[in-house]
Design a protein around this nucleic acid. Sequence first.
DNA 1: GACAAAATCATTGTCTTACCAATAATTTTG
DNA 2: CAAAATTATTGGTAAGACAATGATTTTGTC
Lengths: 259, 259
Amino acid sequence: MVDSESSNKQRLYRQIVEQILQSMESGEFPAGTRLPAERELSERYGVSRPTVREAVIALEAMGRVSVKTGSGVYVLEGKGVAAVGSSVSPFELLETRVMIEGEAAALAASMISPEQILELKAALDEMALENKAGNVDSDVADRKFHAVIAAATNNRLLKAMIENLWDVQEGLHHIRAAHNSVCKEDPDTRLKEHQAIYDALAAGDSQAARVAMRNHFGRGINALHQRTEQEAVEAVQRELSKTRERFSLSRLHQTSAPG
Amino acid sequence: MVDSESSNKQRLYRQIVEQILQSMESGEFPAGTRLPAERELSERYGVSRPTVREAVIALEAMGRVSVKTGSGVYVLEGKGVAAVGSSVSPFELLETRVMIEGEAAALAASMISPEQILELKAALDEMALENKAGNVDSDVADRKFHAVIAAATNNRLLKAMIENLWDVQEGLHHIRAAHNSVCKEDPDTRLKEHQAIYDALAAGDSQAARVAMRNHFGRGINALHQRTEQEAVEAVQRELSKTRERFSLSRLHQTSAPG
DNA sequence: GACAAAATCATTGTCTTACCAATAATTTTG
DNA sequence: CAAAATTATTGGTAAGACAATGATTTTGTC
């Protein structure tokens, strides 16, 4: 309830962006087609032309449209993370994270500084405290923990990619919900997993760090599977089993390479 | 020479965005500070206030500034890939790519469809043709090759991340230059590496796919090191050797895990 | 008459000037 | 010291001149 929704005090051009974005996803303005003219849009939404222009520019900066002077503005198929949009599944997110953060942990193990190990320990303690207090907002320490590891790779680009994944996770409500309910199921195990990651990092053991990180996410994926099953009705059972095979932990380990 | 530079026909607000961005990176507008007022900026750059407004909105959409009504627009420390900006080194990019694309190749090996194998082969042939023709624009087939692998993971988010990395590579001129000169040094070896990746994918061998991909990038990293050394003067020799230790291929293999 | 090139015209985005409203920080005032 | 007025700032609108594009019409040629 901070600023994204149910807030009428949003800037006007942002509201137009939202509406156009919605029309794009709803199929009214499919990719490749031309948007109505500025003047039309201004009349349609009851705003001035400069405001429409601002919305178009924001859309352009997001990489969602391309304006051709004298011709019109054309919606192009989303590129990058924006393309997947809100349709990304928790499995996709977790799988991507386990790959990248697993490797990041392995790299970090051979690079991490004593100060960063201390930071890691602090985040770990913070999580333990949050567990005891039954705090629902446990993500802050969790994110800090993973952020320190990302920073310990000494690779700013890699760090940025990992943070990017966190952002999409926190931005997508259905994923955040699934993640939270899974996390809260067994907080002690979760803490132990983080402890194992910390130990490997502190020991400078790349192999162990990777394995610990993969186990950490692997449990999350499995828990998510179980949770999904619980909620799934028989109608989607077939589709589910396919997904399960696709994102199974065994496949993950097969592609891993512990030797 | 398509549109990014030496083209005066760029839209006005984009030019202002560039200038403000430059002033931000040059330290004139550090993170946390307030930008000059709209009217000041409009006078400074010789454009109208709406144009400045558009530039600010674009900056805002990029997540580089935050406007506070009645107070001013404040520059915030860059988040995500934008934070690294143009200061990302070729080593960082290559290291990130080898990690993500290496794992992606391993995953793709167990998921790839016959149609995608065909696409991969087509891209490979295209690269061979480009090699023979001595075409400088060989990146298109190369990118297609890697894009097919990314798509073969059946993970849209992962695919988006990989494409994102390609975008930063092509967006940063100094990286593109380094990459190109390295690629053109030994195109035959490069082709063979791609062939090895293809073979592993076609055989469904995750292990081999990962190793082939890592070798592919590993050679690029080494070539880049040699090239950097050639150009380096003695003044930066010390710093260089540190970088080399940090991004050495041996460390990469150490963190890899072939068994 | 048929076809191609050139001119015309409507559409569209681009940018400006000018004005007023809303908000936040500052200064004045009681 | 607190409330109110002032000032500075961004937010939004209106109207219009201008430029680039693309379709249409005209024109010229064969």
